[in-house]
Design a binder for these strands. Structure first.
Lengths: 209, 209
DNA sequence: TGTACATCAGTGAACGCGCGTTCACTGATGTAC
DNA sequence: TGTACATCAGTGAACGCGCGTTCACTGATGTAC
C-alpha cells in the first residue's frame, strides 16, 4: 500500500517505485517519436534515470521489453477505440449501433494516421508470450460492436461469422497504408477513410433499414 | 558486352560481375529466412564472398541497401501478381475480368501468407529515394484490373474512383494479418481469404450480371 | 517496540562482440594514340 | 598492334562505438519473534 511516506521516498531514492511501468512508458514514447529501430536497452535505461542492469530486474532481456512495449502500443489503439466508442451516440437503435461501429473503425484508422510508429510495432509478433489479454482489447471491441449490430438486426446472421475478419482487414489495411504515407495528403486520406468505412458497411450488408 | 572470355574471367576473379544485384539477392534471401532485424552489412558482404568495403561501391550506406532490398520485395509481390494474372483465364468477358481481379488480389494475399518476412519489409518507407518505379508494379496491376472491369461494364463508374484504395486496403490488411499469423491455421486462413475477396467484390459492386 | 535477517531492487564496472564506416591500397579493365 | 594511363571495382587493416549482458556488490524494505 502506498502511504505518504513511501510515496515521498520512492520519488528521490534508491527504489524507483514502478520501474517496469516507467520503462514501458519511456519505450512507448521513444517508439512514437523515433521508431522501433533505434530503441536500445541502455539508452532507454539512461532516459529513465536508471542503470542498464536495473532493466533485468523486470525483463528477461530486450526482446521481452520490446514485447511489453508492443503490448502497450496495442493498448493505445484499444484506448483510442474505447474513447471513440464512449464519445459516440448511445442510442439503442440501428443508427446508433452503426455510429458506434463506425466510431471504433474510424479510431482504428486514426491510430494508423496519427500513431504511425506505434502502428508499426503494435502487431509485430514477439516470441515472448503474452500472459494476460490486452486491455482494452481492440479485437474484443470489434466483436462486441458486431454482436450489437447483429442483435439489433442490422447485420445479417449469415455475415456474422465472416464479418470480424473482413472488417478487421479493411481498417487494418487502410491504417497500415496510412501509416506508411501511401494514402496521399491529409485531405485525401480523410476522404479515403470515409470511403473505406462505407465500403465496410456495404460489404457486410450493414444497414439501418 | 559479355563475351565468353569476360564471363569466364568474372566468375573466378577480382571483379565480381554484378555485385549490386548479388547483394540485393542475398539480402532478399536473408530477410525471407531470418527477417529484417538481423540483416547486417558485414555479414551480407561475407555471404556474398566479398569484403564489407566493396558494398560501398554500390550503395551509399546500409540504409540505401535496405531500400533496394525493400524494392526487390515489392517486385516479388509484383511478380507473384503478374504470374497469377498470366495463369488466369484470358477471356474478354465479365467473368474473365473478375477472375483476373480475384487472381491478382489472391496473389497479394498469398504474398502475406507465404512471404511474411518480405511482407514486413516491402512497404517500409526508407528515406532513400526510389528513382524508377518497381517492375512489375503491384499498384499498377491493380489499377489495370479495375480499369478492365470498368470497361467491360461490371464495375459501376461511380465506384471507380474509390475502388483502388478500398480494394488495396482489403487485400493489404488481410495479407498483413496473415503475415503476423493473426488469421488462424492454414485452413482457416484460406477460408477467410475467400471471404475477404468476396467482400471486396461486394463492396465495389463488381458483378457479372 | 526493537532487532535480526531474508529478500528485493537497485549500482557500477567490465566483458566481448560485431557493427558501419574510413583509409590507403592494388589488381583489372578499357581507351587513346 | 603495342603501350601508357585513367578509371573502375575490389582488398585488408583499422577505427571508434555502443550494444546487450554478466558479475559481485549494496542500500532499502518488510517481516518474524
Amino acid at each position: 500500500m502506498l502511504t505518504m511516506s513511501t510515496l515521498k521516498k520512492s520519488e528521490s531514492e534508491f527504489h524507483h517505485g514502478d520501474l517496469r511501468a516507467a520503462l514501458v512508458t519511456a519505450g512507448l514514447k521513444h517508439v512514437q517519436k523515433h521508431g522501433l529501430n533505434s530503441l536500445g536497452l541502455r539508452q532507454l535505461a539512461l532516459t529513465t534515470g536508471v542503470s542498464p542492469t536495473a532493466v533485468y530486474r523486470h525483463f528477461a532481456d530486450l526482446e521481452h521489453l520490446k514485447a511489453a512495449i508492443a503490448r502497450a502500443s496495442r493498448e493505445v489503439l484499444g484506448t483510442m477505440m474505447l474513447e471513440a466508442l464512449i464519445a459516440a451516440p448511445k442510442t439503442q437503435t440501428a443508427k446508433g449501433a452503426i455510429s458506434r461501429f463506425l466510431a471504433i473503425g474510424g479510431a482504428y484508422i486514426d491510430f494508423g494516421i496519427k500513431e504511425s510508429n506505434l502502428c508499426e510495432i503494435a502487431f509485430i509478433c514477439f516470441d515472448s508470450p503474452t500472459l494476460e489479454p490486452d486491455s482494452p482489447n481492440p479485437s474484443e471491441l470489434l466483436m462486441a460492436s458486431l454482436s450489437e449490430l447483429s442483435e439489433i438486426g442490422c447485420l445479417p446472421d449469415k455475415n456474422l461469422k465472416t464479418a470480424p475478419m473482413i472488417a478487421w482487414s479493411m481498417v487494418h489495411g487502410f491504417a497500415g497504408l496510412a501509416a506508411q504515407g501511401a494514402t496521399g495528403n491529409p485531405k485525401e486520406t480523410l476522404a479515403s477513410k470515409k470511403d473505406v468505412l462505407a465500403a465496410a458497411l456495404k460489404s457486410l450488408d450493414i444497414k439501418a433499414a
